[in-house]
Amino acid sequence: MTGPARSGPALGHVLGTAVVCLALLAAGSWLQGWLPDDDADPAAEPHVRAGGVGDALDLRTATVTVDEVRGTRRVEQYGTELVSPGLWVVVGYTVVPTEENATVTFAELEDGRGRTWGLVGRNANSCAESPPGVPVRCTVLMEVPADALPTLRLRLARLSRETRFDAVAEVDLGLTRDDAEGFATAPTYSVPAPELGDPPEEDS
């Protein structure tokens, strides 16, 4: 007795479907590893404005310029001398707000090995809120090991609690190994208070 001929999908069709399914699963698995996880938020990354010492960097709400970079083992702030087992890197910078009062409260150093130093411990950022168009001269001081100096970059931004979506200035401090040796024997540096207004004109 012979039954009716089977009308199911051809073997080739089944195999093709299986291959497509496997390819989709593989693609999905690959995407799973490639896409950001729940904690990552690449869209919120700060907008980095890179430059060097003396460059005016636009942070949208203010312009920031690193004016000078110093180093020493001893700094004096509020009448207290602070001696570092490494080196104090002292950066003087100027903030000029654009449309409304602004200041800089986020500061971070990073070296070429990815090590970062923030405003913790004795590290400090001395800055003040300034009205639009009025420069305020600020100082950030952080202690780092001497071997970090040649690759140090300083990051400055508006808010210490939140840099997501915001503009961040990243300044190559341009320091060298020779600077590290010079800083080790530099005299005590007295950290100035923030100052509003145009900088004093230098005698020519």
Binding site: E99, E100, N101, P132, G133, V134
Partner: peptide
């Protein structure tokens, strides 16, 4: 120029 300066406690000179 539509810039807004807000009064704050500060040191000036």
């Amino acid at each position: 120029d539509e810039r807004e300066a807000t009064a704050v406690s500060t040191r000036l000179g």
